[in-house]
Structures are given as structure tokens and as C-alpha cells.
Design a protein around this nucleic acid. Structure first.
Lengths: 345, 345
DNA sequence: CGAGGGCGTGAGAGCGCTCTCGAGCTCGCG
DNA sequence: CGCGAGCTCGAGAGCGCTCTCACGCCCTCG
């Protein structure tokens, strides 16, 4: 806790360099149209005074903030239990930093928080928003749409409203799930179970759909809804073993679920992969590599998803600033997944 | 990606309510000294126009931003591998939100980023900073000290510079470690090993000190430096078993380390806790509860640490604003830990 | 009944910046 | 040698807000 010193203004720099405020401003913002000797003088003055532009004053006139809100709807603590969120955040941070934008983090906690977030976004404090809205019934996307803030969603928003202009970045959950199940089929398995994630999330739904694409007439008893947690995986696996003791493979909705399932399989005396082959989803490294046996899983590049979200948003903002001029309107991106073979299948 | 509508200004509200800008401003900022009928009229106009104050304009004159930077120095990906960071962030977010402050997240990636962060903080874009600086040789604290931004550190900064006025929030790592080791002693164990964290972090050093407090003349071969990861725990455990096959207990630097150690112990045919008792640190729930056997560990309230950091900073800022007037200068806080007994010791 | 003291309100300056506009200069070409 | 085009630069307005200050009103007290 130290004292804040008074900071030099444009005026001060101008005086020191013997030029006008306007010229200093030009130099600070790129220096086009200013002759070299002056540029040098101004740069020197800036350096000597340790001048840093006052962002508030600048925003006041430009109406840009060079700041982006990242909204994480977090009704459950689950989001924090796995590193998913952190990785995505890192990707976002990298991209924003590269474009000199700030990251304003908004974590929501329950319904009343939504209003707060809506107000903040509508308040025009940021140029755009990156929104993680996991659940189908989430009111947040609608709120944001109404706030009129340029937005990119993380994951396909499961959302019944007006879909025009909605931009999102997602993994190819369905395709990845198909690859996983096909892999199991290729291994000669036929009684392939699926532990889904909570089905109010589009990622869980899409993975289930992918499973069904391959297992066209699957025994419905082979499908159980989990919740993307290890504990949920255990519960689901127990139920599956009770229902269908003859199952010979499990496609788990994510790696955490798979880790729980593996534990239960081991307890029950099943050998993995000999008796039951297991495939996960995510390739969450600390999890997938540390399970026993190491997990065969579907990799999605989470950090890249974050990076891309930020990139898409910034592109959109540029377009916005340029009066819809340059380039095509950004559209949603679905990233491919890859199957990573380890020992469990 | 939608259009942004033009937002109403104070002027507009004033016109609609038939009062001056000054009066509207007063109402918006609490309404003291304005008579009831006017207050009501202004409130109505605000409501009808959907007026939201322009934060940039406000900051320009008040020199407050109601925003706090959270700086996470992250030379290693480790920070993201465990939910530690996310939990702390959540605590911070809650407290900031409760005081209507925004959270600006700054993730650093390598040395060159430090300069960027320093510049940003010095730029006066935020009122204060919460800094997680894990490593002893980190230049960040010094940079920030020089930037003159009110700051609270997460974890005791291991830092050779001027310590006056440095405020931090930390767990009682040393005391917690003592409790853990005493517990093992109480269980009748005498060959108690310690897998430390990377010793360029104060938390690791403090825990090691706590271990030494109890094991005053410990066999030095019983101490191995790990790195707070499961893989590091495995490596360390192997080395310990090779060096001291007769060990009967392990105090691991954190839960992740313990999980790795448990795996190696199981491999080597040791029973836990019968042959070797194991205690961890953190009580990281998804980890500690899911190990086999469930982990006895030292709990620290991570979210509370975050909350407290934010609270301390905001208090400091108030004092700052009030010309050092009210209340005592905030000082560092060390939070107590508690031993959580499960099956592993 | 008049003077004095609040209290509530409005006028206006100014926070630090960007950006438009016009003045002055240089240069090229007829 | 003259004139217009094209640069470079400075003057000044204004972004939306807060805050000081002064003015007018009402109330109180002598």
C-alpha cells in the first residue's frame, strides 16, 4: 500500500517537447503524418516523463475501451473442479494481450447476479463479451443479446431465442463422440455403454448424439446420465454394471467421469481394457494420463478454443468500428477433435 | 454481434426531469441533500431512459476506477493444473462484486510480460492490485512496489526488498505442517518422510520448516524436494523408498503430491495406512476425497483467502481515499488451518 | 419586522484526451 | 514565376461527468 504519484499529462509532454497537444497525441497513437525530428523529440519527452495515456480520458472521446468482459456463468462449483475453465481463460488472455485488450472477469453466482452482469454489459464499459453459458435454461444469452453487446459464446448456446448473429466456438463434440465409439466398435466391442454429462448442457447432448449416430439401435439401458464429475461417473458405472453386467465398453462423457468409472470397474474386478474398454473425452492431462490404466480419450484443444473466441470477437469489433466495412461477418467455429490412444481402449 | 444503441447522458436525464445536471448527479450518487420530490422525479427519468453513468467520464474526474487488477504470475502451467487459483479467484470475485468493483485479470507468461503488467499498473487504470507471486526470484513485486499501486499479495512474498507496507494473506503453512507431522507422531510413526514443494516458493519452505519444527533431528535423507505435482510426487516417493525402505509415514507438500506418492506406495506393495501413513496438504476436494484411500490432509480455506485479499485491499483503498484518515492501516493476515482426518493416516 | 444563517439548487469550470478544421509551408508543374 | 495540391502542425471544441461556488429561498431569532 504505497502512495500514488501525480501522473504527467499530454499537455506536460507537449510543453517539454515544444509542440502542441495534438502532435503528441498523433505520435502516441502511431505517429503518422508527423515528421521524424518531431517524432523523436516527442518520444524522448514521453520517455523522460514516463508518460502513460489516461485511458479514461481516451475512452471518453473514442468510445472504445480496449477491454472485453469474460462472463462465466457458474451455478455449480463444477466449473472450478476441472481445469477446463482455466485453460480457456489462458487462451483468451493470450489473444487479448496480443491485441492490447484488457480482460474483465465476471463470475456469476445465482440468478440475481444475472441482472448485475446485464447492467454492466449494457453500461458500455467494455467493447464486447465472451460468454460461457453452459445450461439450456440460462437467461444470460438473452439478456446479453438485449444489451446489444458484441458477443462470442464459448460452446454452442442451447437457446431457443433468436439465433441470428449468434457466434460461438465449440469443439466437434458429436464428431468426437462418433470417433470414440467407432474406435470401440473397431476393437470388436458391441455392448458399448455411454455415461452422458448433464443433459442440460449442449456438449453433453452432442456427445450423446454422436454415440447414437454409431450405436443406431443401442440398448437404452446402456445409456446413463452422469454429471461430468468423478463421483457421478462412479454412480453411473455402478448402475450400468447392475443393469447390464455383460457390457464390454464404456464411452464416458468426459475424463473425470471416466476416472470415476475406472475406479468402480476395478472394484468390481473387471480388467480394463481386457474385460471393459473405456474411452473418455477432453484429454484433460492431469486426469487422463494419471488414471490406471492411462485413458484413451478424445482430445479437444481447450486453450485454442479460448484463443479463437477472443480472436473472433476482436475481428467483429474491428468490423463494428469500421462501420461493417471490412471482411466477412465472423461466424461460428467448430474445432475438430482427435482420438488419443492410451491403454484403456 | 449486434448494434450498440446511443446511450442517454446526464444531460438528457436532467432535461427530462426538469432539473440541472448537478442535481441528477447528486441523486445518482446517493441523493444526499436533494429534496424528496426531486429525487423521485430524477429516479423516474433515469428509469425511463435506462440511464447508466459513463464510467470513463466519471473516472476522468474522480480518479477512481472501481476496478482492481488480479495479477497471476504463471511461469509454469502448474497453476492451472489444480483448482487452487480458480477457488481464490472466486473468493476475490465475490468480495469485489459485493463492493461494486470490477476484476481485471492479468495473466503473465514469461519475463517480457512483467514489463507489460508493470506498465499497466503504473498507468493508473485500476485502483489497486491483488498479486499472486509464487516464486522467490520473481521481479513482479518489486515492479509493483515501484509502480506505487496499492497491493495485497496472495501468499507471503518471498522477497528480499523493502518489506515495509507489504500486505499479504497466507495460510498458516508452518503451523499446518506441524499439525500434520504431530498427527503422524501421535500415530506412533517415527520414520516420517517429507516430500516438499518446489523450494523457491514460500509455501513450500514454510511447510518444510513446520516439518522440521517437529522432526528436530530428522534424517536428511527423509526429505525430498518435489514440485507440487502428482508426477513429482511419484518421482519423490520412488526416491524415498529407495533411500529409506523403512519409512513408515509421509507428509506430502500438497494433495496432488500425495496422490502421486500413494500410487507409488501401492505399486511397491505398501499398505496405506498400515505400512505407511500419508498426510497431504490443501484438502483439495476432488483430489483428497478421491484418492485410494481417501487422504488425511491439512485444510486451508482457499476461497476465504481470496475474499480476504480483496477485502483488505478495498479497506486500504478507502483509507487511501480518505487521506489516511479512518481505521488502522491494513496488515497481513495468516489464516489458520485444520487437520482433516480420513483414511490415509 | 429585519437581519443572519442554513440548506437546496443551478451555473460553469475542468478532468485528459481525440479529432476536425484551417493556416502555413513546400513542391511541382504550367 | 505563379498557383494549386498536398503535407505538417496547432488551435480549439467537446466527450460526460463531478464538484466548487454562489445565489436564492425559507426559517429562526433578536
Amino acid at each position: 500500500m504505497t502512495e500514488t504519484a501525480p501522473r504527467p499529462t499530454l499537455e506536460a509532454v507537449a510543453a517539454r517537447a515544444g509542440v502542441s497537444r495534438a502532435t503528441v497525441s498523433r505520435v502516441v497513437n502511431g505517429g503518422d503524418g508527423v515528421r521524424e525530428p518531431l517524432v523523436a523529440r516527442v518520444r524522448k519527452a514521453v520517455e523522460e516523463l514516463g508518460y502513460v495515456p489516461n485511458q479514461a480520458a481516451r475512452s471518453l472521446v473514442t468510445r472504445r475501451h480496449d477491454a472485453v468482459a469474460v462472463v462465466v456463468a457458474e451455478p455449480e462449483t463444477r466449473v472450478f473442479a476441472d481445469p477446463f475453465f482455466a485453460l480457456q481463460l489462458r487462451g483468451i488472455s493470450k489473444e487479448l494481450t496480443a491485441h492490447d485488450n484488457q480482460l474483465v472477469l465476471l463470475l456469476t453466482e445465482g440468478r440475481d447476479d444475472h441482472a448485475r452482469v446485464g447492467r454492466y454489459l449494457a453500461g458500455g464499459h467494455v467493447d464486447g463479451a465472451l460468454v460461457f453459458s453452459l445450461h439450456l435454461d440460462d437467461p444470460l444469452p438473452e439478456l446479453i443479446q438485449r444489451a446489444g453487446v458484441p458477443t462470442v459464446f464459448g460452446g454452442r448456446p442451447g437457446w431457443s431465442g433468436d439465433r441470428r448473429g449468434v457466434v460461438y466456438v465449440d469443439s466437434d463434440n458429436r464428431g468426437g463422440a462418433r470417433d470414440a465409439v467407432r474406435h470401440l466398435v473397431g476393437l470388436g466391442r458391441s455392448r458399448i455403454a455411454h455415461i452422458a454429462g448433464a443433459l442440460d448442457q449442449t456438449s453433453a447432448v452432442d456427445r450423446l448424439d454422436g454415440y447414437r449416430d454409431v450405436m443406431v439401435d443401442a440398448d437404452p439401458r446402456l445409456i446413463v446420465e452422469g454429471d461430468f464429475t468423478p463421483a457421478g461417473g462412479e454412480r453411473a458405472m455402478r448402475e450400468l454394471l447392475a443393469r447390464c453386467p455383460d457390457l464390454d465398453a464404456v464411452f464416458a462423457g468426459n475424463d473425470l467421469t471416466a476416472s470415476g468409472a475406472l475406479r468402480v470397474l476395478r472394484e468390481s474386478g473387471r480388467r480394463v481394457p481386457e474385460d471393459v474398454a473405456v474411452v473418455g473425452f477432453d484429454d484433460m492431462l492431469p486426469v487422463a494420463e494419471q488414471t490406471d490404466p492411462p485413458l484413451t480419450t478424445v482430445r479437444q484443444d481447450i486453450e485454442e478454443m479460448g484463443r479463437l473466441m477472443a480472436l473472433l470477437l476482436l475481428r467483429g469489433l474491428d468490423r463494428h468500428a469500421a462501420q461493417q466495412g471490412i471482411g466477412p461477418a465472423p461466424s461460428s467455429v467448430v474445432l475438430p477433435t482427435t482420438l488419443v490412444r492410451r491403454a484403456s481402449a
